[in-house]
């Protein structure tokens, strides 16, 4: 985001983890219409079906940060008997930031760091049995996701597709690894 946010390494990491994802998603939702924190949370969870639901604390912390950076502003504060309700709106600067983010490509993951790969790297050929069990667990999850797709909303179907194709990539790697181990075993 703006240079102001990248003032220390810790803040920089926080930027990547929190603002680079949630902040931009909230900006995208605010670009459609001004909303309360509560609405933003609901809309986020619905649109990013399959992602971890957003905690209220995170919604408000992110909104404050967006406000501080000039990307969002308070459009209205109202208190009718209940708790104070703040309506947030996107600013022109916020729209420009959102445009920038939407046009930026995600860097293709440069290295492999999953627990699946780490186990095989440590165990070597002895990982054979583990891989067969992991394969079964992956497939069981793929069956669940496939069943969910039959009755899901369009957002859920998109999320399930995303999960299914990533699990499938893992599975294809598992199968290749098993075939390589077998080949090495045959030649040994």
């Amino acid at each position: 985001m703006g240079n102001r946010a990248i003032s220390s390494p810790r803040l920089f990491i926080e930027c990547i983890v929190v603002i680079m994802s949630t902040g931009h998603v909230l900006l995208g939702l605010l670009a459609e219409r001004p909303q309360h924190g509560y609405e933003l949370k609901k809309e986020h969870d619905q649109r990013l079906a399959g992602a971890k639901p957003l905690a209220y604390g995170q919604v408000y912390a992110t909104l404050q940060r967006l406000e501080r950076d000039g990307f969002a502003e308070v459009a209205e504060t109202r208190q009718e008997g209940g708790p104070e309700r703040t309506l947030y709106a996107i600013t022109e600067e916020g729209r420009a930031e959102l445009e920038r983010w939407l046009g930026t490509i995600e860097p293709p993951a440069p290295y492999v760091a999953g627990g699946l790969f780490a186990r095989v790297a440590v165990a070597g050929k002895a990982a054979d049995g583990y891989l067969v069990r992991q394969r079964e667990a992956h497939l069981a999850r793929m069956r669940e996701l496939t069943a969910e797709k039959a009755s899901g909303t369009p957002a859920r179907v998109l999320a399930a597709d995303y999960a299914l194709q990533h699990l499938d990539a893992d599975l294809r790697w598992i199968e290749t690894a098993l075939a390589r181990m077998k080949e090495e075993g045959d030649h040994a």
Binding site: V132, R133, R135, E136, H138, L139, A140, M142, R143, L145, T146, L164, Q165, L167, D168, L171, R172
Partner: peptide, 25 residues
Amino acid sequence: DNRVAAYADREITLRDGAVLAGVNP
């Protein structure tokens, strides 16, 4: 194709002409 196999109720995995042990739920 694993994505096609995921439509099934269960899976039978073959390897070298035999059923792979321990993978059927």
